[in-house]
Each structure stands twice: as C-alpha cells, then as structure tokens.
Design a protein around this nucleic acid. Structure first.
Lengths: 204, 204
DNA sequence: TTTATATTGGAACGATCGTTCCAGACTAGG
DNA sequence: CCTAGTCTGGAACGATCGTTCCAATATAAA
C-alpha cells in the first residue's frame, strides 16, 4: 500500500489557509482552491467532505502554525510585557513584509462574515480569542509578580483590553498601507499596559 | 406624473443596510434583499444598477444615519473625553439591545471581506476610519485645551489609538454575548485617554 | 371613467457555485 | 512485463447566483 502523498497534497491546507486568509471564506471558490493549492478537485474531496470542513481545518492549522509561532513570546516566554512587545513587533514585521494592504487575522476576518448559527465555526473563533486572552493574562501576571500590585480581576480585564485592541489593529491593517500608524498603536498599547502594571501609579 | 414612491421603496436602502450589516455582503443574495426590504426585483433594479451599487448606497446611508447619530457626542459635542464616553455608552446600549451576538460595525465587517482591488468600496472604508479619527482628534483637542499639554502629534496618535481600539471592540462584539467585557473595555479605553491627557502625569 | 405612469411578481437567462463522478495517467511491487 | 492502488483533470450535475425582461396590477391625473 503506497502511502506517499504528493508534495502538493502536503501543502493543501497551508495553501488553502492563505487563500481563505487573504480573500475570505465566501469569496474563495473551489476553483480558486484548486488553482492556489495545486490539488485537483478529486484530491480535495478525498481529503475533506466539503469546503466548510476544509475551512475548519484551515482555522485549526492557523492556530497550530501561525498563532503558535507569533504568540510564543507571550504564551511560553517569561518576559512579561516585553513578550507582548515582541509579539506585536512580529505582527508588524509581517505587515511590512506584505508591502501593501495587510491581510489581517484569519479569525478576525472570519468574525465579520460569520453567521452566528454556524456554531462549529463560531466556537473556533471563541477559542482563538480565549487563547489570546489567556496568553495576555499569563504575561501580565509575570509582569505583576515582578513588582506590580494588580489583582487577578485587574489582570483579567487588562488582558481582555489587550486582546480586543490587537483585534482592532489587525482589522485596520486590511485597509491601510501605513505601517507607522500600526507601529504607534503598538507603542501606545505597550505604554498603557506598563503604566497599569507599575505600582508607582497611585489613584489619589 | 405621480412621484410618490411606496413606503417600501423609501425604506429600501435602510432595510438593505441592516441585512448587509448583519450577514455580510457576499452572503446576502438578491432574493434575501427582496424578502427583507419588501421591494421587488424590478423595483431594486430601477433604483440601482446592481447589487454592488446598492451596497455602496448602504455604506453611505450608514454614514449619514448610524454614524452621524452615534458619533454626535464626539463629532459635534464640546465635552472632550466625556463625549467619547457617551459615544461608547451608546454603542454598548445598542449591543445590549440586541440581546445576543452583536452585529458589529458595517464598515468593520466589510473590511475583513473586501478585495483591496475594489477601490470604490475601499475608499468608503478609509473615509469612515478617517472620519472617526478626525472626531477623536477633535474631542481630545478639547480635552487637551482644558489643561492638558499634549502636542498635536500626540493627539493625533492618541486619536488613531482610540479609533483602532474601538474597531476591535466592534469586531469582538460579533462573537460574544458578554456585555461586561465590552463595558470594561470601554472603561479602560477612557481611563487611558484621560491619563494621557492629564498634565499631572510626568515621565521621570 | 379613461389614460399614463409606477410597481409588482415571477419566469427566464447565462454564469458560476459546491459537489460528484470517472476514464486515463501515474506509481510501486511482484 | 503485469497488477493494484492513487491521483489527476475535466466533464457533468443540480442549485443558486446576479441580472433581465415583461405581462399584470396598482396608482394618480385628467
């Protein structure tokens, strides 16, 4: 029983993920996927029951590869807010590498076009946001342990703030070519997080 | 020559706007629009050359009605950051009124599914973001004149930060039913803006 | 009422959608 | 060589898309 799959089959999900990422689920046709992945219609349908299941696999792959890589400084690092800064710097260098309009975040893009009744997709989006928030909680806790005095509730709230703000940054990146604005946004966010974590600040 | 258009024709763009807003441009079919607007196919095509032009009219209507109303405390008020707070409060009450998943911002949702080569649509999105930023610049300038010491560049940067963050808030509102998280986000954003505007804060 | 215009609802068009199917090409082992 | 299993490329399906068209209907002016 020959098991060797062709090279194109190995990259099926990766290439499909990029296509969905750039153009959006509903715009991408099976013909587009055949062209962009180099896999025939028959090949795609032997691996996946349909377009939606392939898309779900792309969302999973997005988590396993893109997010795991980019989010590592926050998710597995030990540097507190500095890890968040490194995460944002990586996002910005990706944007600059595109040299034009960004493609945003696959999950964020999907959020704006999802029917809430598609619970399967919706849950994947929610898991993504929960993952980001958890990472921020982790990094902010490290920072707080280093001398801050934030309560768990305050850390939780601040992590949500960071997650939602970054969501906006990636949404906006799809309609601008100005890397400076995104860079300054990143700087401001880090500034805010640092101020909130520093014990020096005292409300009257 | 009878000029009176039927009541349904008057509301054509309004109802189409809500349908696009909730479900997204590519998901909404002409059949959906006929059902949701109560206007016949023929009627729609006498008023607009096609689906895309109707959508553009919806984006314009969104600016004229929704944004003009919600953004008024920022855009025409004289209350500085307090105007921004009122704007965010209105957004939140709209979200709570939906009692479920929010529908986000029509422009934000479109951002995630637009092909950058559709320059007509893209420019409308950019004009929206520019409008929001301009409003925030206005409100922050009022606040700064009231005793702050921000430079024009700092105000500009802070306005961009607010615009992008709010964008994230609305994107996230489509995948959550938790109004508290959005409320806290709003509070945090206002807190940050106030801190930056207050002259009392001195970097070492 | 008659006449002219506005609007409807639905049939119908070609294009394209997601999906199915399969004859032929390819690959590896005997 | 032959055989068995895998994959391709494209034809073809029914459904639905945006769009066009028009006979029938409703409306308002004369």
């Amino acid at each position: 029983m020959p098991k060797t799959k062709s090279a194109s089959r190995e990259a099926l999900v990766d290439n499909a993920m990029r296509t969905f990422w750039k153009n959006g689920y509903h715009v991408v046709s099976m013909g587009d996927l055949v062209r962009e992945t180099g896999v025939s219609r028959g090949g795609i349908y032997t691996d996946f029951p349909g377009k939606q299941e392939l898309f779900h696999a792309c969302l999973d792959r997005y988590q396993e590869t893109v997010i795991t890589s980019l989010f590592a400084p926050v998710e597995t690092g030990e540097e507190g807010i500095e890890g968040i800064r490194k995460y944002l710097d990586e996002l910005l260098s990706h944007f600059r590498a595109d040299a034009g309009f960004g493609i945003g975040c696959l999950v964020g893009n999907t959020t704006g076009q999802i029917d809430p009744s598609e619970v399967g997709t919706l849950r994947k989006l929610q898991e993504h946001f929960a993952r980001l928030k958890k990472g921020f909680v982790r990094a902010l806790s490290q920072e707080s342990d280093r001398g801050g005095r934030l309560t768990k509730a305050e850390i939780d709230e601040l992590a949500s703030f960071a997650m939602i703000s970054v969501q906006g940054m990636w949404s906006y990146s799809r309609s601008t070519t100005d890397a400076d604005v995104l860079q300054k946004f990143s700087n401001d966010l880090i500034t805010y997080l640092e101020e909130r974590c520093r014990p020096s600040r005292q409300p009257s």
